[in-house]
């Protein structure tokens, strides 16, 4: 088994768990959003890694190329990056709105206390 050779898969799992931990353990909503970002980005790293082909070059038609990397996972992940950006945008917009409504973005402070009246 080639443990070291697959280091990017190890990094993907470790990154993902760091992000997951932040989402669960951090009370601050922005930190949760950062954790969520890490979590998703780790999945992108995984997708990009599976497109790797030994000795493959960028998948652009080129006379000297022997092998090409698999472009499909890369294209897929472009779509997933767009999805992730929109999720982040909605999440941050929600955090701003929560701050307006509750005056705080610490979830442990918000959940116990009744929200301030707004509008």
């Amino acid at each position: 088994m080639d443990w070291i050779g697959h280091y990017n898969y190890w990094i993907y799992v470790v990154l993902m768990m760091i992000g997951f931990y932040a989402v669960i353990a951090k009370p601050n909503l922005v930190k949760k959003v950062i954790g969520l970002g890490l979590f998703q980005t780790a999945a992108f790293l995984f997708y990009i890694s599976i497109g790797m082909v030994d000795d493959g070059t960028a998948p652009i038609v080129w006379g000297h190329a022997v092998r090409y990397s698999n472009p499909l996972p890369h294209v897929l992940i472009l779509t997933a990056i767009v999805v992730s950006v929109s999720t982040m945008a909605v999440a941050l917009a929600l955090v701003v709105a929560i701050h307006r409504a509750h005056g705080s973005i610490e979830s442990n402070l918000i959940d116990g206390s009744p929200p301030k009246k707004h509008e």
């Binding site: 999945a43 599976i50 999440a91 929600l94 955090v95």
Partner: peptide, 29 residues
Amino acid sequence: PQALRASFNYLVLGTIGATFLLIGIGYLY
């Protein structure tokens, strides 16, 4: 105003679920 918190929680869990699906589909590929 609680709707915002509800939505944020849903967003976090929904994104985790969707990312799981993404990883699973990646493994299948």
